[in-house]
Amino acid sequence: MNILILGYGKMGKIITRIAEERGHQIVAKINIENVADLEKLDTSQIDVAIEFSQPDAAVGNMEWCLKKGVPVVVGTTGWLDQKEQVSALCRLNNGTLFHASNFSIGVNIFFKVNAYLARMMQDQKGYRASIEEIHHTEKKDAPSGTAISLAEGLIESNANYKKWELQEGKPVAENTLAVSSKRIDPAPGTHIVRYRSEIDDITIQHEAHSREGFALGAVKVAEWLPGKKGILSMNDFLDF
């Protein structure tokens, strides 16, 4: 496959290495320094783009791909307040947009465990749920996209919580799920869902040991994506 890399930071470099090890060709590596080179590319020679940039660049990159007919795999988070306009553009252009807050297979299994536990805990009134995430200091958005996905999954599965809120040293309302963020180097990513009561705690946790799992997942999705249309997610890829 011919792959366009959008965002050439730490994740972009790992994705490039893994893609090349799997026999793919990298058409170009675009970042803030050479973004003008996008208009010089021959899109007929691009099978798929993989977008791991920054929140302030991601929407523009996605819009370029969708207007040019390039299927795009997006791992950048922190732009979801503009998700509806990007989704509308995808539908308008009959495009292909695959977004995931986390491409790790383990994390996506963790999402399912989180939702299952949330359903089980709905009638256990003595417990109070919370989510904590820990990432490296270079991560721009807080809470992480993975933490938001966990929060949304818990709220969808447990009627005791109506919304989530970033906890910044103050208590949240009873029907609000508290989410806390910590930035500590060199942590690639830890997510903890906790149900606390006066009697005991129930905790589930996912801890990434490196960025390799995220990058490999993104490349595998890119290999799977050509020929598919619409707005897709890890549920489609993993057939959960």
Rank of each mutant, 00 (worst) to 15 (best):
residue 1 M to G: 09
residue 3 I to F: 09
residue 4 L to F: 11
residue 6 L to T: 00
residue 7 G to I: 15
residue 8 Y to R: 01
residue 9 G to Y: 13
residue 11 M to S: 09
residue 11 M to P: 02
residue 16 T to G: 04
residue 17 R to L: 04
residue 17 R to T: 10
residue 17 R to S: 13
residue 17 R to P: 03
residue 18 I to E: 02
residue 18 I to T: 05
residue 19 A to D: 10
residue 21 E to F: 02
residue 24 H to P: 04
residue 26 I to K: 03
residue 27 V to T: 03
residue 30 I to A: 08
residue 30 I to E: 08
residue 32 I to C: 00
residue 33 E to Y: 05
residue 35 V to T: 09
residue 40 K to A: 15
residue 42 D to H: 04
residue 44 S to N: 11
residue 45 Q to K: 13
residue 45 Q to S: 09
residue 46 I to L: 01
residue 46 I to D: 02
residue 55 P to Y: 14
residue 58 A to D: 13
residue 58 A to Q: 12
residue 59 V to W: 06
residue 65 C to L: 12
residue 70 V to T: 05
residue 71 P to S: 08
residue 73 V to R: 05
residue 74 V to Q: 13
residue 75 G to V: 02
residue 75 G to M: 07
residue 77 T to A: 15
residue 81 D to S: 14
residue 84 E to Q: 11
residue 87 S to E: 15
residue 87 S to K: 14
residue 88 A to L: 04
residue 89 L to M: 02
residue 91 R to A: 15
residue 91 R to S: 10
residue 93 N to C: 12
residue 95 G to Y: 05
residue 95 G to L: 02
residue 95 G to H: 09
residue 98 F to H: 08
residue 102 N to I: 04
residue 106 G to E: 12
residue 108 N to W: 02
residue 108 N to P: 07
residue 113 V to M: 13
residue 114 N to V: 14
residue 119 R to P: 02
residue 121 M to T: 07
residue 122 Q to V: 13
residue 122 Q to S: 13
residue 123 D to E: 14
residue 127 Y to I: 11
residue 127 Y to N: 03
residue 128 R to Y: 00
residue 133 E to P: 00
residue 134 I to T: 10
residue 139 K to W: 07
residue 140 K to Y: 05
residue 140 K to T: 05
residue 141 D to V: 11
residue 141 D to Y: 01
residue 142 A to P: 00
residue 143 P to N: 06
residue 143 P to T: 08
residue 146 T to E: 01
residue 150 L to W: 11
residue 152 E to F: 09
residue 159 A to Q: 08
residue 161 Y to W: 07
residue 163 K to R: 14
residue 163 K to Q: 13
residue 163 K to G: 11
residue 164 W to V: 00
residue 166 L to I: 01
residue 168 E to K: 15
residue 170 K to Y: 15
residue 175 N to R: 12
residue 175 N to P: 06
residue 175 N to A: 15
residue 180 S to T: 14
residue 183 R to E: 14
residue 184 I to Y: 10
residue 184 I to M: 10
residue 187 A to L: 11
residue 188 P to N: 03
residue 189 G to L: 01
residue 190 T to N: 09
residue 191 H to P: 00
residue 194 R to W: 00
residue 194 R to P: 00
residue 196 R to C: 08
residue 197 S to L: 05
residue 198 E to R: 09
residue 198 E to V: 00
residue 200 D to A: 14
residue 202 I to E: 01
residue 203 T to C: 11
residue 203 T to R: 12
residue 203 T to M: 10
residue 206 H to S: 07
residue 206 H to F: 08
residue 208 A to Q: 10
residue 211 R to K: 06
residue 214 F to R: 08
residue 216 L to N: 12
residue 218 A to L: 04
residue 220 K to M: 10
residue 220 K to Y: 01
residue 226 P to A: 07
residue 226 P to D: 10
residue 226 P to I: 01
residue 227 G to I: 01
residue 228 K to P: 10
residue 230 G to S: 05
residue 233 S to F: 05
residue 234 M to T: 14
residue 240 F to P: 02
